[in-house]
Design a protein around this nucleic acid. Structure first.
Lengths: 230, 230
DNA sequence: ACCTGAACACCGTTCAAGT
DNA sequence: ACCTGAACACCGTTCAAGT
């Protein structure tokens, strides 16, 4: 009689891993990584901290689970029948946007080495890399380069968002500060950094990210290309 | 009369930023990032926590300063008159080795966006990229791709070391666990991940890292190459 | 100027006790 | 099986008070 209704919105009072993860995501989105606290969480869920430990191993487990929920959604939303290079680009951009929307995911991914969320991404890179004709022996190196780059930029962006929030509450102001600090560096020791300080303000993170992906794709082609019409 | 002796080893009892940073590095190297505690630090230095705050803004400041000390040493030890591509490779490897020796540096770098330690690396990438003949308009994209990749792998390696320490106290055991978890994944959903699970145990992180750098360098050449003898 | 160390406002995690 | 909530063992940071 009281079977779970197939719909979604049924407000069940009992605790569950899923409800805990949803509440965690909300906390993380609104207050950043440091906002995920067993005390805040148990208040939002109207329980004690002990109750949460019944469904979840520890804070790290919870963070990875929340991260995985976001990654799973993101990966599932991708179209599957596209050409390999387009697929890699689409995945990369989807990741970038997901982490832009949930900065804490960037740092969580770094700490989830080899675990489910990372594997989801790995798989979505590996399949098109295979399709690209990269030989078996080189696949791991190629895929892990792409993965490292994607995770690296993600973590970086997450850290930037975190810093901007803490220091200035304003991202542009943060970049301005960095740009003027760079301009004030010693001209002999830091010629390059000084020369790009101006570009810093104007640049588009998302575009830079994508041109990094394209650079790696070019490298892959040049190293393992099928050279179709040769 | 009591001028500072020019030598180094004079054991001065008074606190200084430098002594605090040295003690921090020792703590971080022996006990990981979580080992850096104002209590442990003040015990090692035979003072109270308040004394440390006189020389250092806060924990984050301290971590970045410790990180910068390592990066500065690493960058200074590099030879300066080498060909551009060799210089980039040498810098990348030096960073990899430094972070391998001090895993906490990897995560510290991520949180030091735009600050001195990162700028040191940026500059050392930028100069050879210029020498490679990459046009001004593309320099930022190229350099930030390399930087992101290097920092990304660094953070990743740091996290692995941290995880291995926490879970198993043994790095090989950690990789074994991941490899067997990957092998147990669903064959339909994760064909690629399953296929590389075996390679995971055998692979050499350092080599993989370098082939990623080479991939990016290839891409740079192919996009902006001087094609000397064409 | 520099140091002391108690005190404040937090943390994650555990565990006896309840239902 | 699942939840409660007090208690434990920590944190970073501050600040009146000392020298």
């Amino acid at each position: 009689m009281t079977k779970k209704p197939a719909g979604s919105a049924r407000r069940d009072d009992s605790l569950s891993r899923e409800r805990i993860i949803d509440a965690s995501i909300e906390l993380l989105d609104t207050h950043g990584e440091r906002g995920l606290t067993f005390r805040a969480l148990s208040e939002n869920l109207a329980t004690g901290p002990g109750a949460i430990y019944w469904h979840v191993d520890n804070r790290h487990d919870l963070l990875v689970a929340a991260c995985d929920a976001i990654i799973a959604r993101t990966v599932c939303a991708l179209k599957s029948d596209v050409k390999p290079k387009a697929a890699i680009r689409a995945l990369a951009l989807a990741m970038f946007d997901a982490i832009d929307a949930h900065p804490w995911v960037g740092s969580a991914l770094t700490r989830a080495a080899g675990q489910l969320p990372v594997v989801r991404i790995l798989e979505r890179i590996g399949q098109p890399v295979r399709a690209l004709g990269v030989p078996d022996s080189a696949q791991w190196a190629v895929v892990s380069a792409l993965l490292s780059y994607i995770l690296g930029v993600s973590a970086q962006n997450a850290a930037n968002a975190h810093l901007a929030r803490e220091l200035n509450a304003d991202r542009t102001g943060f970049l301005d500060d960095v740009a003027s600090a760079w301009s004030a560096l010693d001209a002999n020791d830091y010629p390059f950094t000084r020369s790009v300080a101006g570009q810093l303000r104007a640049h588009d993170d998302r575009e830079d990210f994508l041109s990094g992906i394209d650079l790696i794709l070019l490298g892959i082609e040049s190293a393992h290309g099928k050279r179709k019409r040769a």
